[in-house]
Design a binder for these strands. Structure first.
Lengths: 207, 207
DNA sequence: ATAACAATAGTACATTTGTCCTAATTATTT
DNA sequence: AAATAATTAGGACAAATGTACTATTGTTAT
């Protein structure tokens, strides 16, 4: 039959998102996929391989979205669309974020890959910031390491807003994603110049 | 012998912090506590009761620390000491934060209690902010819900800085706690008035 | 001192889980 | 068409886990 491996990944994602990795057994996955447990081990010899496959999908999606956005003029709106895209993608693979610590602890390859990814992401961020500063959109640093700390905060917020929402919200809708996106992006507002503020508000009051 | 129940809680905390709740079996706890598995079930009939007991300890410690700090004049330094205290206590019970989502999902009583706790914490925060504003330490809101979003960010950072540190740092020392404390508190800096900024910098360059 | 109770040890049991194995079936190649 | 490989089903197995049960030891009260 067509693509059993893909089907397994698909239902695994759904189950992981719903119940959390630890609460999903291979038998559950097999049943939901309509295949036998033996067939599952045929396609994924070890349980971790399923998680790893989904991680590959996630990274691929993120890269695809980032590459198309990161060329061209640097402005606040670029940061906005990047963040909004990231939020949507991360939500699609939310079980990773909900189980972030355990995944990283139990999957050294994923952890290693994520580390290098974080580094390039950090460099891209500082690149962007320095351009926004010379741009007149953001003000220069007024404290030592001020933008290093800002980056730390942004990455924590991006990595864990889903966990926070999972705890405090009853269910997560499109509105929730917008709310958390706005919450994260507003971190930037107090660092903007008057010119930057104008751009910021225009992005939230379009037309 | 003396206090077996306390001993169980003590070694459970250590084991949970080291390996994560899900990776600690009752047999591990019993062995480390130097008692039999049967004796463990005698003191804690269900596994969740251990977690619940530790949660009680955590809440008690937080309350004890908050009550002594929250009286008297309102200033930035109050916020600083509160945050620093919270960071230290949360780190002591870090397994909660590292497993936040799962604990909340699997322990409805803890979730319910945490919800009411969050509400009062939020109210206290807005109380404090409004005093700091009329104080001349912080500037008024310049965007709708600006301080609501600031609170959201602060609580996410407080709840998940440990998870972030666990992923990116190899080991967490006293310096790490200071670093993350500074990172969190610097969220406030750009909302300060010139007067508030003076107070802020004086708190980081004491004497 | 003896009865009543609390604490502890040790083991048993049912369940669940990841993984493996073998046989059957289907698809592909020659 | 025959042979070879890929895929699937179904069950087996060992390991681990939470919890229950029984017997024994220690403590306290009368």
């Amino acid at each position: 039959m067509g693509n059993t491996k893909g089907k397994i990944a698909e239902v695994s994602l759904a189950l992981f998102n719903e119940y959390g990795i630890a609460n999903v057994s291979q038998r559950m996955i097999a049943e939901r996929a309509g295949i036998s447990p033996g067939n599952l081990t045929y396609h994924f010899k070890r349980r971790e391989e399923i998680v790893h496959e989904l991680y590959r999908q996630l990274v691929e999606k993120i890269n695809a979205r980032l590459d198309t956005r990161l060329v061209g003029t640097v402005s606040l709106s670029v940061l906005f669309t990047i963040t909004t895209s990231m939020i949507a993608i991360l939500y699609e693979y939310r079980f990773f974020m909900l189980d972030f610590v355990h995944v990283m602890k139990g999957h050294p390859e994923i952890k290693a890959h994520h580390k290098t990814l974080s580094l390039t992401r950090e460099n891209q961020f500082f690149e962007l910031i320095s351009q926004l500063v010379s741009n007149g959109t953001m003000r220069p640093e007024r404290l030592p390491d001020e933008y290093k700390f800002l980056y730390m905060r942004l990455s924590i917020l991006l990595d864990f807003w889903i966990s926070s929402a999972a705890v405090s919200e009853t269910d997560i809708t499109k509105d929730t994603l917008d709310l958390y996106g706005q919450m994260i992006l507003q971190s930037l507002f107090p660092y903007l110049t008057p010119q930057g503020e104008t751009e910021y508000t225009s992005l939230y009051q379009p037309v």
